[in-house]
Design a protein around this nucleic acid. Structure first.
Ligand code: FES
Ligand code: FES
Lengths: 142, 142
DNA sequence: ATAATTTAAGATAAGAAAGTCTGATTATGA
DNA sequence: TCATAATCAGACTTTCTTATCTTAAATTAT
C-alpha cells in the first residue's frame, strides 16, 4: 500500500487542526479528540504526548485538563506537525527509492518529482492552521 | 518516516526499469539485478515472482534463465508496476488520512492535494519505460 | 543421464508500526 | 480532605513489512 504520511502523522494532523478550532484557551481531552476523530484512545494519547514534548501543544492534567496549542494557530503550519512526527525525509528522497537523489544523479523522473515534492511542501507551509480551521467543513470536527 | 511507495514497490520499479535496458529478448538473473541494484537477493526474488504472476514479467528457469519484460517496454509504464505491487489507493486517498476524500467532503487541503495527486499519476503514466530506460543515467544501471 | 544453474515455494525470523493495558501522577472541585 | 478526572509513562501485544533460509522443480549443457 502506498502512503504519504504515517498513520501517526495523519492522526497528529487531524488532532492539531481540530484543536485549532478551539479559539479561546480552552483545553480538549484525549477522550473528545479520540471520539470525534475516530482514533484509538491510547494511541492518540501517545501522539499528543509526543507533540507536547516537541513543543507544539501544551497539556494540563486533572479535571478540565487536556491539550491546547502551544502558540497562536496562525503560527503553526501542517509542516510543523509533519516535521515533528515523520521528519522531513520526504522533501529530499527519491520517489523510486534510489539512495542518492539530486540533479547530479537524477533518476528518470527526478525533475518531475522534484516539482511535485515542492508542491507538497508548499501545501504544508502555505496555510497556517488558523486558516485551515476556518475553511474546515469535515463532519468529524462538529 | 514519510514514504510514497513501499520498499517492495521501489525495488520493483528499479528492477523493471533495469530490465527495460535489455533490448533483445535477453534474460536477466535475480543475481545480476540484486547485485547491481543493491537489493536483498531472496526478497527481490519474491518481488519478481509477483510481477511475473501479475503478467508484467516472464520468467525462465535453468542456466541462462532469469526474467524479462512480458511485453515491449513501450507498452509498460511505472504506473503498471505501482498498480501491481502497491495498488492504486494513493490516487484517491486523503493526504490527511480522513476516511472520505472527495469534493463533497473535502479536507482543508483537498483541492491542492487532488492536483498534486494527479501530477504524481501523470508522472507515472506519461512515460513508458522504454523512454525511461533511454534517459536513465543512474550508475546502478551500468 | 547427469551435473550445474536458475526460478518457485513455503516456512520462518527480525524489525517496525500500530494499538492496548495498567498503574502512577497531577489537578480540580465538592 | 477526598473522590474524581485527566495526562504520563512504561510494558506489552498484535499486525504488517522486510528479509532470510531451505528445499523442490525446471532447464540447460556436457
Ligand atoms: S533521483 Fe529519483 S527523484 Fe531524485
Ligand atoms: S479529503 Fe483530504 S485530500 Fe481529499
Amino acid at each position: 500500500m502506498s502512503i504519504i504520511f504515517s498513520r501517526q502523522c495523519e492522526y497528529a494532523l487531524q488532532a492539531v487542526t481540530y484543536l485549532a478550532l478551539k479559539t479561546n484557551g480552552e483545553m480538549t481531552s484525549i477522550k473528545e479528540l479520540a471520539k470525534k476523530l475516530g482514533i484509538p484512545y491510547h494511541f492518540l494519547g501517545k501522539i499528543l504526548q509526543d507533540l507536547t514534548y516537541k513543543g507544539l501543544l501544551v497539556s494540563q492534567k486533572g479535571p478540565s485538563g487536556g491539550f491546547r496549542l502551544a502558540m497562536p494557530a496562525k503560527d503553526i503550519t501542517l509542516f510543523h506537525v509533519v516535521e515533528a512526527i515523520d521528519g522531513v525525509g520526504f522533501t529530499k528522497n527519491c520517489v523510486l527509492g534510489f539512495p542518492d537523489c539530486s540533479g547530479q544523479n537524477p533518476c528518470a523522473v527526478h525533475e518531475k518529482w522534484a516539482g511535485l515534492r515542492d508542491g507538497i511542501y508548499s501545501m504544508l507551509v502555505n496555510k497556517n492552521i488558523a486558516q485551515i480551521a476556518k475553511e474546515t467543513r469535515k463532519p468529524e470536527y462538529v
